[in-house]
Nucleic acid binder design. Sequence first.
DNA 1: CGTCCACGTCTAC
DNA 2: TAGACCTGGACGG
Length: 404
Amino acid sequence: MPEGPELHLASLYVNEVCDGVVFTGAVRKSEVSKCPDVPFTCEAYRITATSRGKEVKLTLTPIKSADSKRTVKSGQADQAMDVVFRFGMSGYFRFSAEDELPKHAHLRFYTKEKSCRVLSFVDTRRFGSWQPSGTWQRDRGPCVMFEYSSFRENVVSHLSDRVFDRPVCEVLLNQKYFNGIGNYLRAEILYRLNIPPFVSARSVLESLEVQDSLEKEKAVKHSITGKKSDKVKEEDETSDLLRMCHMVPLEVVNLGGKGYDPAKADYSGFMSWLQCYAVEGMNCLQDHNGRTMWFKGDPGPMVPKGSRSTRAKILVKKERNDDNADKKKVARSRSESTLKKRPIKQEVTEIKAKDASLSEAGSKKRKTGKTAEETKPRRSRNSGEKAAAGSQRRSGRIAKQNSK
DNA sequence: CGTCCACGTCTAC
DNA sequence: TAGACCTGGACGG
């Protein structure tokens, strides 16, 4: 599930399904989990959730009854407890019947119902974690979605920090400044702005100000009366990287539905929303950390040496509907960058690799005559995640569902 | 069957 | 800045 939008949707999910539900007893952990026990036991309690960036906090609140003072046994909570979750690569919450517990339900909260149900933290890969009596992780910055002004402030006031020497695509994953941005969001955000991923972060951020310039503009317009002074320099609403770090994740929240989770039922809406990440025809390279960066066009000057164009998974195939494309383009030709949304007919395919033309980007940074693949043993990001690939796989198959 | 890939941190050399 | 931490789906042989 897990970038900022999915964490927030998870908190909405918890609040919805747990509304009016009474939980009871102890919080139980799976045998296999290495995360800490949650020492909370209560005859009757409620669960609510909030999110911040890439964390979710559950609050367990004991329900007071008239005779509670007498009834509270030792070992029973009478105080609320917060449990803070990080989702790793595969975490999510599910509310189910007790006899239909999902596989990998590693932390469980049981309802006080005759036919008991369970709120579970499910995490297939177990990269997620929780912290009993937890607080928001100290080194994480403000939420890009719901603490927008302090998020801006935090970035703009630290631009001299040396982390901003790094390529912008790598800095966008730094949760100290971009809490909530992950691998698909960085691709989508930079794509919308046409910013090459491997240019220094400072160079694209240094012109930005603490206050969102659109907000400023609104304020000005407002004070000027209702006069629609078009003279006020119409700034392109999609031109500010920090604003896009706020807006793009909110778009995913407003899809209302499933985020990226191939294991789950309906994520087709999300797949259609993607314009760049894992989209056929886009380029990709490994960043300095071995993570796949999806982009279009120029990669920028700071591509890591030896970065290979990965044979990353293509999840989305989009098909142009060219019939009226040109006309529409002219009609709305106001700003180049707002035209990113090509008139498109999209097809969500099953996951089928096609490995389109990634070679272009890859060849750019081949300085020697030889390919990176030939000269260097490929850097591997980590043992489990990326074993250095030996063989080239080329498959030319795409699920052909483009019939019509 | 085996290899490669995946929405993210962590910590150890 | 490599690994470590994990499971499982897609794909290739």
